[in-house]
């Protein structure tokens, strides 16, 4: 016999995930606009790999395929991985990343709802540690690189790693604005000198700043639609802004301004799409603020002092580890109980 309640109004898991996917659309569109359609190929590869791995793992774990394949969570993981690696990467890069994310980071920990770490970020971390070389060849935004590949040539490269005769990979790609900033600072240049380089736009990297803005737009939609809690992006972006602002005020020649931090790298997609993964973030309001602050702090530290170009992924993973603790600490007061009564 069924137990009450007999009526429900669920915004089901698949519809939640679908909305998150919709929210990625503006960012992806701008990505295509500025960097060409290679990213779409990359997304297709990553998503296919993610779904295939999901199906395989479900089979192995003897779980029903249909409800879990149609919840779009694997799809989202694939998308996020494709968006965090260079688009002009050999085909196996997104495939390995997605497969690892789904098989190890998700299913070996118990599948949907039980994974302590954000699968996409684990996939990314594995790739950047295992294939640092491939992971740094980012496409130049259109109009910056010396030469441009046609879609056919890009596809050819992705699947065979062969470039058309007479073209150099280095001529097509560049490292990310964040990476460039770090290397050039090491070489003794000042922030303002570096930002005069052709790859930089008004706020951050040319093109990539607009992509970030696209993600922010999608994120705002998610906030308004109450798909994601507001505490996480606010605390994360706020912390990043405040820290970089303070450092920038103290020494503008060596520390990039806050908006640069906001609009470069994975800050925006991280704030709205990665940190906000409900499974791997805290469940209490105060916990989310702590989580966001921690992630912002770690991101800034890794970006400024760490050895990797961006810090969002590692910051996320590190904070994921603290979630159970944060949750336990921040249990809210319940109706009719004073805080002190608790435990």
């Amino acid at each position: 016999m069924l137990s009450s309640p007999f009526i429900t109004r669920p915004l089901s898991v698949d519809r939640i995930m679908l909305r998150v996917l919709y929210a990625l659309v503006p960012g992806i569109a701008l990505y295509v606009w500025y960097f060409g359609p290679a990213i779409l190929v990359s997304i297709a590869l990553a998503v296919t790999a993610a779904l295939a791995t999901e199906a395989l793992m479900l089979k192995l774990r003897d779980r029903p395929l249909r409800p879990f394949l149609s919840d779009y969570s694997a799809l989202l993981t694939g998308c996020l991985i494709a968006l965090s690696i260079p688009p002009l990467a050999p085909w196996w890069l997104p495939v390995i990343g997605s497969a690892f994310a789904i098989a190890v980071a998700k299913h070996l920990y118990g599948g949907l709802g039980s994974n302590p770490f954000n699968p996409a970020m684990i996939g990314y971390a594995v790739l950047i540690i295992s294939f640092p070389h491939e992971m740094t060849h980012w496409l130049s935004p259109q109009g910056v690189g010396q030469s441009v590949l046609s879609l056919g040539q890009q596809l050819h490269y992705i699947f065979t790693s062969a470039l058309p005769a007479g073209m150099q990979l280095d001529a097509l790609t560049m490292s990310t604005p964040l990476d460039t900033l770090k290397t050039q600072l090491h070489l003794g240049m000042t922030v303002s000198d570096i930002r005069d380089l052709p790859i930089y736009g008004r706020l951050a990297g040319k093109g990539s700043e607009m992509v970030a803005a696209g993600f922010a737009l999608g994120g705002l939609y998610l906030l308004v639609a109450r798909i994601i809690p507001w505490q996480l992006p606010l605390a994360f972006l706020g912390t990043l802004f405040a820290l970089s602002g303070v450092f920038n005020l103290i020494d503008p020649t060596h520390y990039a301004p806050p908006l640069f931090h906001w609009f470069s790298g994975a800050a925006m997609i991280g704030a709205f799409f990665i940190l906000t993964d409900p499974i791997t973030s805290p469940t209490t309001a105060r916990g989310r603020i702590i989580f966001g602050i921690g992630a912002g702090l770690l991101t800034f530290l890794i970006r400024t002092y760490g050895g990797f170009p961006d810090g969002v992924a590692f910051a996320t993973i590190l904070m994921n580890m603290c979630v159970p603790l944060i949750d336990t600490w921040t249990q809210p007061r319940i109706f009719g109980k004073k805080k002190e009564d608790k435990r």
């Binding site: 089901s12 898991v13 409800p67 919840d71 949907l112 709802g113 409900p278 469940t283």
Partner: peptide
Amino acid sequence: PAAMPCIRCT
């Protein structure tokens, strides 16, 4: 519909 795992969406 069949119950899915909790996604901690709160």
